[in-house]
Structures are given as C-alpha cells and as structure tokens.
Simulated assay, not measured.
Amino acid sequence: MKKVKLILLFVLIPLFSFAQLEDTKLVITDGLDNASLKAVMENNVSLFLKACNVAVMEGEKPDIEEGLTKDAEEVLKEMWKMSPMSCPVSTVEEVCLQTSEGYQVRNIPVTMMAAAEGEQDQELVLHFTSSGLIDNISIALEEHRYKDIIAEHESVEDLYRRQVIIDFVENYRTAYNRKDLSYIESVFSDNALILTGKVIREKPKSDYAMRALSREKIVYQKRTKKEYISNLKKVFKSNKYINVLFDEVEVIQHPKLTDIYGVTLKQEWNSDRYRDVGFIFLMIDFQDEMHPLIQVRTWQPEKLDGKVLAREEVFNLGDFDIVRSLVND
C-alpha cells in the first residue's frame, strides 16, 4: 500500500504544479492610480498568461478571446511560431510605467520552450493602450541594463528619447526572433549605411611573421538596405528558429546633433544553422520623433586573435562624419 501511495504522490505533484501555473496572475504594485483601469490591465495580463500556460500544457496555440488588440494578437501569433512560452510563476508583481502611447509593464518572466538550454528564461514587456488592452509584446532587456540607460539621462527630452530607444531596441530584437521582416525594413533609413565585419586569416610570409604578427584581421562589407533585407529574408527562410540576445547595451547622445543617438550592444545570434557573437552599433536619427530611423548599422565579431575587442575598437558615433543633409530621408 505504501508503494501505491508513493507512486500517486509523484503523479500528483506535477499535476498540482501545472494547476498553479494555469492560474498565473499580475498584480500592479505602483504607478497607476486609476483603480478600474488597474483592474482591467491586471485581468487582461492574467488571461494572457493563463492562455499561454494552458496552450503549452495542451500543445496548442493560445486561445485568447479578449484583452489584446489585433496588432498584439498578430505579434503573439508570430512569436508562438518561433517558440511557445509559459509563465513559471503563479503571481507577477510589477509597477506600471506610463508611456507616450499608454502604459507598460516590464519584467514578466517567461520560459521560451524552443530556446536552447540556458537561454529559456526570458522576460517580456507588455505595452497597453490607454484603455488597458495589451497592444504589443516584446522581449525585455535585462532590468539592470534598463535602469542604467534611464539613469544616464541629462534632460527631460533625453529621458523621453532613452525610453523610446529602449522600446526601439526591444522591438528590434523581438522582430528578429519572430522573423518580422517588414518591421525591420521599416526602421532602416532608405539611405542607411550597413557594414558587416568578417574575420579572415592571412598567410604569413615567414616563420618570424607567424610568431610576431596577428594572423587575423577584420574586413568590412558595405551593403545597401535592399541588399541587407534581401539577405535577411534568405536567413529567415532557411532557419526554423532564431533567438537573438542583446547585452551590454550603451546609449550615447551626440554632443552637437542632439537628435542623433548611438547605441552599442553585444549580440548573440542563435539559429538552427548558425551561431555567432558580435558587437552591433546603431546610429538612430530622431529628426522624426514619432518614427526614429537607423542611419548606420555595423557588426563586428566579438573576438580577434582570441581576444575580445576593446570598447575603443568597436564602432561609435565618433567614427562617422554626419552631414545633416545626408541624414535626412
């Protein structure tokens, strides 16, 4: 009889755990005084998380009848194609942030089921309309990185743009993960400068050269926006799953052209057929505040001759002469 009880115990524990996850809920702890709106947002997020958990348990797609806009439904659909996700906790307690378009709740923990081991634990950012509907879903930067970027603001305008840049970078990353080619195309200027570095090994001319000099160097290939998007389309088509991770994000405002920002970050690219780690530099133009554009994108390998590139070797705003008439689209 004891053996039977023991077996039943092991069977019931996972069932109990799944039942707990199914009832995942959000509690907004601060940042929103409107009690009725707060209740609507909490309910919509709770329904969203519950639907994701049930879908993972049943091997189906999320069935959500309310709480999301059509845009958010489409984003979720595309993200789900890349990887189903569940929320591993029963209660999420977070503050609500007000944005220019509505509200935002960050740091929603999720498990990306299709991600490689060690990369499954990620966090979402949920964007809301002024009425409390979930309007967008993106993968969050790490919380400490977010706080560092915001803390470095020098004016109210700079603070606003840093918030926009964080949203921009998070949506940019999520667009790669869900293979959203149209979004990526929309954030690049038609005249964007795109440089991609490649490490090549040089054959030394003598044994002394082999011992004394670096055998590796980075050569850069310049691409147009059209070429870059065309190549990316092929990459998306040939890979079932793509997981792009951003880290070490730094944001710098141009000292003279204050509507120009430089964003440097380390990117880890993981896909079915390829993996690399490198440094990305983005020059973002805020001349159109409602539609900032990438004017420059560069990629450099993380290491050369086995050593991580020093920060001064990574592209930054100082490496480009900006002529305003050329920046304009």
Results as ranks from 00 to 15, higher is better:
Asn270Ser: 07
Leu304Lys: 15
Ala116Tyr: 02
Pro301Gly: 14
Lys179Asn: 08
Val4Lys: 10
Gly59Thr: 06
Glu154Pro: 01
Leu12Lys: 08
Ala39Asp: 10
Phe48Lys: 06
Val45Pro: 01
Leu317Lys: 04
Ala35Gly: 01
Thr224Arg: 07
Phe246Ser: 02
Lys147His: 12
Lys70Phe: 03
Thr298Cys: 07
Ile242Tyr: 07
Leu265Ala: 14
Leu12Ala: 14
Val314Thr: 14
Asp247Gln: 11
Tyr160Leu: 14
Tyr172Ala: 06
Ser131Lys: 15
Met82Asn: 08
Ser182Asp: 15
Leu304Glu: 11
Gly118Pro: 13
Lys240Trp: 05
Ser130Leu: 08
Ser138Tyr: 01
Asn316Glu: 09
His291Tyr: 15
Glu73Gln: 13
Ala51Pro: 05
His291Phe: 15
Leu133Thr: 02
Trp299Asp: 13
Ser214Arg: 14
Gly31Val: 03
Pro255Arg: 02
Ser271Asn: 02
Ile280His: 14
Asn328Glu: 12
Ile194Cys: 03
Met1His: 11
Ile166Met: 13
Glu73Trp: 00
Leu326Tyr: 09
Asn53Pro: 00
Ala175Ser: 14
Leu195Ser: 10
Val156Trp: 05
Pro88Gln: 03
Arg273Asn: 15
Arg201Phe: 08
Ala19Gln: 09
Phe188Ile: 04
Phe279Cys: 06
Val199Ala: 03
Lys233Thr: 10
Ser90His: 02
Leu97Glu: 15
Glu250Met: 10
Glu216Met: 08
Phe315Tyr: 14
Ile108Tyr: 13
Asp190Arg: 04
Gln120Tyr: 00
Gly132Asp: 10
Gly318Ser: 14
Asn136Lys: 13
Phe10Tyr: 12
Val105Pro: 00
Tyr176Phe: 15
Leu133Ile: 06
Gly306Ile: 13
Val11Met: 14
Glu123Gln: 12
Ser271Leu: 02
Glu216Val: 04
Thr224Met: 05
Lys25Leu: 05
Thr24Pro: 02
Asp247Tyr: 07
His254Val: 03
Gln253Thr: 08
Asp23Ser: 14
Asp121Lys: 12
Pro109Gln: 01
Glu93Ala: 03
Lys303Thr: 14
Leu26His: 09
Met41Ser: 09
Glu157Pro: 09
Leu37Lys: 10
Glu60Tyr: 05
Lys61Met: 02
Met41Asp: 01
Tyr241Asp: 03
Met283Ile: 00
Ser230Thr: 10
